[in-house]
Structure formats: structure tokens, C-alpha cells
Computed example of a mutant assay.
Amino acid sequence: MFLTPSDWNEDSMPISPNQGSSAGGTAVVITGTGLANATAVRFGLNPATITANTATQVDVVSPAGHGSVGVTVATPGGTSNALPFFYIEPPTKTSLSPSSGVTAGGNSVTITGTNLNTASAITFGANAGTITSANAGTVVATVPAGAAGTVPITLTTSGGSTNGLFYTYVAAPTVTDVDPAEGPTAGGTPVTIGGTGLTTTSQVTFDGAPASFSVLSDTELTAVTPAGTAGTADIVVTTTGGSDTLAAGFNYLAGPGI
């Protein structure tokens, strides 16, 4: 039975690297003695491509393969002992959570899939993210800043790269106006709030008190004011892209007293 890469002592092994993608194409250097005029290098039963050869070194490009195999060098003087090489299967991605966030980046996302433990790089569109943890089934990464819109995610491992998942950068909302702009302290006033980037609205508050709301479009939503105290109240609209405040946007009117 062959060993896994973690079991091998790379410092004493005359093969570097000792692992690579199952698709092949890994540049591998084999060192030793009596290697001149190498006629073949095999990874298991599969021949590699020899790119350079001296008496003490053979440079090859690995063929495709699977699992752990023995690497041998054949010369006119015979065939060497076998050195272990481990093929790493390509990654797959099955889900992304969350799949959207602020353009400023900085939030954490989790990617699930298979063969992810050797993840070394991740990009969101053209921008590099930061991998904070990785195991065979999960990668956690920090999203970089990006422009509003949807971008592909590419994840690179020792077994290759994979994409197929997409992340959406959502622009921060703006709140520009409210109509009507006043109502009783008891609440219950239907209002229309205008602005931009309102499609993903998740909360509307009046001085911190949540209001019921409905999104009409990216530039308009309706809400019903909660109860409040007499005076002006800040209106805060929160979306996937962040939040915006219309300072003193609504005026609560005290009822008459006798």
C-alpha cells in the first residue's frame, strides 16, 4: 500500500514535488545518480514527458493518473527503484453561502464541495480573496472589494481549479425622500420611501423601531410607521449592500391634550 503525502519525508526524497494534479501536467524533478540518457520515466504504468536530463537529474512533466503511484527512471543501465508520487483529484464546488454582499468586501463566505483541502487561492472575478480555512469539504474565505454586479468564483487547489459558482456584489442603498413625512406618534402611517439600491431591503427602522415594509422596485418601497415619540426620527434602510440613513426623515406629531 502506498503512503499519503503527509507520511513521506520530502527532505530525504529525490523527487520534487511528490504530488500533483490527477490531470497531469505537473513539472517534477527527480535527482539521483546514473540518470544520464534516461529512456523513460513512468508514473505507475504511464509514461511521463522528459524535458531535461543530466547524470544526476531528470526533469519530467507528469502524465494523468489517480491515487499513489511509483515513479521509476529507466536508463540503458537498468530501471531505478520506485519513488512515491500522489495524484490529487480536482476540486468540485457545490454551494456558496452567502452568495452576495457589500462592495467593500470583508465579509466571510463558505464554499462546500469535494477535494478542497489543498486550496491555495481564490478569486472573485479578477480580485483575489483570502482563504482563512480549508478542509476536504469546506473552504472559508474573506471576500475582496469589488464593483457592483455578479462575478465568477475560481478556487485553485493542488488538483486543479474549479469555478461554476457566482458571487453578487450589491451596491449600498441610498434613501432620498419619504412621503408623507409626518404622522401621529401612535404609528400606523403608510409612507413611500424613495432611493436607490432598495431591491434587497431586509429592514426599515424609524429611530431604531422596525417598520413593516414592501419593496416596490429598486427605487421605491412602502412602509408603515411604528409607534414613536414626538419629534423627528431617523429612517434607516438596510439591504444586502449595507444601510443608509435619512436623518430626521419623519416627524412624529403629538396628539392633542385637554
Results as ranks from 00 to 15, higher is better:
P90C: 10
F86P: 00
S97G: 10
A52E: 13
A74F: 00
S99F: 06
N53I: 07
G101Q: 11
F86R: 13
S62L: 04
N53P: 08
A74S: 12
G70N: 01
S99M: 05
H66I: 12
A52M: 11
T75K: 09
V102Q: 15
P63S: 01
G78W: 11
V71F: 05
V58G: 05
P98H: 07
A64C: 02
A52I: 13
F86W: 12
V61P: 00
G67L: 05
P84E: 10
G67K: 11
G77V: 02
K93Y: 09
K93F: 14
A52Q: 11
S100L: 09
P90F: 09
E89R: 15
P98C: 07
S95A: 15
T79A: 03
T75P: 08
T51H: 03
V102D: 15
V102W: 00
F85R: 02
V60W: 11
T54A: 06
D59W: 02
S68W: 04
V69R: 08
G70A: 03
D59V: 09
T72S: 02
G77K: 01
T54N: 07
S62M: 02
G65P: 01
A55G: 13
T79P: 03
E89V: 14
G101A: 11
V69K: 05
V60I: 13
P90I: 12
P63G: 00
A82N: 07
P63W: 07
T75F: 05
S99I: 05
P98Q: 05
S97M: 12
V102P: 13
I88F: 04
P91Q: 14
S62W: 05
A82V: 09
G67E: 03
L96M: 12
H66N: 14
A74Q: 12
V73T: 09
G101K: 10
T75W: 04
P90K: 08
N53V: 08
S95W: 11
T56M: 03
S100G: 03
P84Y: 10
T75V: 06
A74P: 00
T94L: 10
N81T: 13
G70W: 05
T56Y: 04
V60N: 06
Y87R: 04
T54E: 07
L83A: 04
V58F: 01
V58L: 02
G78M: 05
V102L: 12
